[in-house]
Every structure is written in C-alpha cells, then in structure tokens.
Simulated assay, not measured.
Amino acid sequence: MSQFTKAEIDADMAMLTDKIASGGTVIASSSDLLKKSFFIPALSILLSLVNTWTFYYINSLRYKYAYSEGYVEFLTSDGLFVLIPTVIIGLLFSIMTYNNLLIYLTIPDDVRKKSLILGHLEKIVFRTVVFFLGLMILSVILSGFISWFAFGIPALEFALFLVLNMIVGMEINRLGAGLALEKISNLIKKI
C-alpha cells in the first residue's frame, strides 16, 4: 500500500478538479467502453468453457467415452449449470464496470497518468484482477479432479465483483478522497 501525505492528496484532487473543470474531459467511445467492460466477463465465460471441458475430459478418460459430440451434449445439459451463472454474473459485472469506466475514461489520459490517486487505484484494481484470474485458472485445473471446482469460475467472478468494489471504496476512504471524487463525478455528469 502506498502512503501519501494529506498535502499530496489535496494537491492531486485540486489538479483533477481544475483539469476537469477546464473542459478537458474526453467522451469515451461506446465500443471502447464495451470492450473494456466485457473483458473480464468474456474471459470468465471462456474459462468456464475450459472448466467444463476439463471436467468432462478427465471424467471421460476414467470411463473411456471421450468424444467431441459428447462434450457438446454435456455442455448443453450439465454444463449449463456452470455457464448460466457465469453469464448472469458477467452481465451484472459488465454493467457496473461500464458505469465506472464511463467516469474513469472521461478524465484525459495525461491527467490520469499524473494523478497519484488514480494511479494508486489503478494498481490496486490490476493486482486484484490478476489475483482472481489466477484463482480462476487454478479452479479450471482442479475441476478435473474435484467436480465442485467447476462452480469456481462463477463464484470467483462474483467475489471479484464484490471485492473490487469494496477495495476501491476502502482505498478512496483511506485516502480521504471520497468527497472530492464525488464532486469530480458530479462535475463529469454535468458535462
């Protein structure tokens, strides 16, 4: 965790407020927002497909019935119990991410790079996402041996959604930047 002084936080918030109030905001393209907000859910669906394939393949080797049509049949029957929650949680995740990215991407790129607070929050988000993606890959590997790990992808996707929002909120409060970021958010919404 980074340590900042109150003066650094105040200077950073003043810089962010001045840059945004000066009209230097950027309107992000909807295609860019959609790509970024659906990245984790799309990756989760892909990992969920690999997860069901691993479960099917390992179990089919035990009973000697591995064939590609069997996987499709398994996927459309029992595999849906893993895919449907992944898709539903992914849609919720992408909607919330879309709103957060909409606010984040309206801040010009050079301002984001200069900002201590936004840089710190970006590092925290990146580390959290990488940690949960590692757990998802571990769940894919273990699902071939223990069937309950097949539900690890939707569970970890939901946990990532909750933990990410909780950690970002806690860091904003820790830095004392909550009120200032709310003012910036309201200013961006008016623009």
Rank of each mutant, 00 (worst) to 15 (best):
Y65S: 15
I84H: 06
L162C: 01
T76W: 14
L118C: 09
F145N: 04
S94K: 02
L47Y: 05
D78H: 12
S143Q: 02
A21S: 15
S44P: 00
I172T: 07
G134I: 03
A150M: 10
E73F: 12
V140L: 02
W148V: 15
L80K: 07
L187G: 13
Y104P: 05
L135R: 02
L121S: 09
K19L: 05
L49I: 14
Y98Q: 08
F38P: 00
L156Y: 10
I191S: 10
L34T: 13
L142M: 06
A150H: 11
S60R: 07
I141G: 00
M136W: 02
H120N: 14
G176E: 01
V168Y: 00
L91F: 12
L75W: 04
Y67E: 11
S147I: 14
I184N: 08
M96L: 13
S139D: 05
F149R: 12
M15T: 07
R127A: 14
E73W: 06
T25E: 05
D109P: 06
L116R: 05
D78M: 13
R174A: 12
L116D: 02
D32I: 08
M170T: 08
H120K: 03
I117Y: 00
T128P: 03
I172S: 05
T54H: 08
I84E: 13
A14N: 09
S2K: 09
V72M: 15
Y57W: 11
I27F: 08
W53C: 02
L187C: 10
